[in-house]
Amino acid sequence: MLIKKICTSAIVLATLSLITFASLADEVNVYSFRQPFLIEPIMQEFTKQTGIKVNILFAKKGLIERVKREGELSPADLVLTTDISRLMKLNNLNLTQAVDSKVLTANIPSQYRDPKQHWFALTTRVRNIYSSSERVGPANITYQDLASPEFKGKICTRSGKHPYNVSLVASVIAHQGEASAKVWLEGLKANLARKPQGNDRAQVKAVKDGLCDYALGNNYYLGKMLADPKQVPWAQAVNINFPNQKTTGAHVNVSGVVLAKYAPNKSNAIKLMEFLSDDLAQQIYAEVNYEYPVKESVPASKLVASWGDFKADQLPLAEIAKQHKAAIKLLDEVKFDL
């Protein structure tokens, strides 16, 4: 009875899926680490302009494993993700293919795409240091300062294992070597006001609550908090500072896209990639999520622009991504999250 049931349901489901997957030719399939509220409006615009239907699967963990397991049968055309390490990982696992597109090369500055055209950044974001506007005011500060004894018990951050922090640690390793990075990380850990927890917004809230004076956080969270009535007071309790302005420059990470190696709808997928790098999508990224567009002619949102220009770390992203595993291991070694 059970076997019968399973067989019947399998056949029914399979037929259904065949209808959805195989018969619609004018579509494109996206695996997205990025959130629906941001991606959906962009995709709607794309469908409106081109008539191509976009199927999306959103998840924050494991999508790379899924593509890998699915192999040459994978329905995924594009993978959208944040963090350079994930883009490079897709590339290193041989799950991507090169895209030769004049639109992409014209829209995306060379430091924000793979020289071999396997990955393309779509937006950039800064890992800022927020400071309490009440107790500190605007601060001229470096990531390295956060490890010095005068900041003891004053710093809040999310889990060290979160990709944003891992990449920051990786960039410090890339700049000053593992041994020196370890000393820095130990100092930072010793200065934490509490065990790493919550997300970047929760750290700003902690500053408002007086738990700490400084918090690590990406730039766009400030914009998002100002857009949520409940969180406006949190946002107003902090100043946003661009770190390392007199030294190496602020750590900048990216969100980006790759074309899957076995993409079944390749030409549609490239159309979507080009669309994502172009004016309209870039504007949505800037306005909805307060990220910096990669396309230079598209301005940042008014709010983001009001924070002023800044000096960005000039180290190539690929160099930082190379230190990803070393960074995770370092975080374990100093027991950062424990």
Partner: peptide, 27 residues
């Protein structure tokens, strides 16, 4: 996914077209 890959390979061997991820890509 392994079952799916095998199944598709077999189908192609016997001259049918692929069915895609029959098990692992569906509910």
């Amino acid at each position: 996914t392994n079952i799916d890959l095998l199944l598709n390979q077999l189908l192609v061997e016997f001259g049918f077209s692929r069915v895609g991820l029959l098990f692992s890509g569906t509910l």
